[in-house]
């Protein structure tokens, strides 16, 4: 841990950004800096898992991380070009639901870990998931919902992927406030996430296992 990661872990945007600016001015390798920022966010995730941090703090930490990343990324691109992707994840809130908080947190947590993400937004119909899987070629599809009314859409979307012959090309994870008590098999998914952090761990494991390619291949 350094000043950047400490600042992120303390949710102190001013301190974290000041540390980034000072390090960049001193000529510190931006790759080191982004790695340190990720350590800070990882620390927040661990505190969240331990019950020491709350959801709002996880959101705030992702914002602070993003502020530091916005300072680091131009230098990173200048020196190293576009970095290698750890894999691709497609995310969206299923049809009939417009809640996007959990999905947005997942997006930031994946982004800071080098994952390429396509976010389809909210109220996403099954054909849109199918088209995006075909075009984007993700290893993982993450679907979110909060309303019980939207729960059947998980299964409907998976069945649309099956019908398109794409189900076996992806791992599928679902998440959201009302789904955590449900079985993945009932939804035809591979996993039901208990929270954003836990879901990200599962997705990263899938992507790493697949070597950054399509997780189900």
């Amino acid at each position: 841990m350094g000043k950047v990661s400490d600042g992120i872990a303390a949710l102190d945007a001013a301190a974290a950004c000041a540390a980034v600016r000072a390090d960049l001015e001193r000529g510190r390798d931006p790759m080191e800096l982004i790695d340190e920022a990720r350590v800070g966010l990882q620390e927040v995730g661990e505190r969240f898992d331990a019950g020491e941090y709350f959801l709002i703090e996880l959101i705030r930490a992702s914002q602070v991380f993003q502020e530091t990343a916005d300072l680091i990324n131009p230098k990173l691109t200048e020196l190293y070009g576009r970095g290698e992707s750890r894999g691709k994840v497609l995310i969206g809130t299923v049809a009939g639901d417009i809640h996007d908080l959990g999905k947005s947190i997942v997006k930031v947590l994946l982004d800071c870990r080098g994952v390429e993400i396509m976010d389809l937004g909210v109220d996403v119909a099954p054909p849109a998931f199918v088209a995006a899987v075909r075009d984007f070629g993700p290893g993982v599809v993450g679907m979110s919902a909060l309303l019980t009314a939207a729960i059947p859409q998980f299964r409907t979307t998976v069945e649309a992927l099956e019908a398109a012959g794409l189900r076996d090309t992806v791992k599928i994870i679902v998440g959201g406030g009302t789904v955590i008590d449900l079985d993945a098999a009932m939804l035809k998914a591979d996993h039901v996430a208990s929270d954003a952090n836990a879901g990200v761990d599962v997705m990263l494991a899938w992507l790493d296992e697949a070597g950054g390619a399509s997780a189900a291949n």
Binding site: A95, G96, I98, L147, A149
Partner: peptide
């Protein structure tokens, strides 16, 4: 309508 043809009132 109620789902699946409609949705519950939602706020954007």
């Amino acid at each position: 309508e109620f789902p699946p043809h409609g949705n519950l009132p939602s706020i954007y």
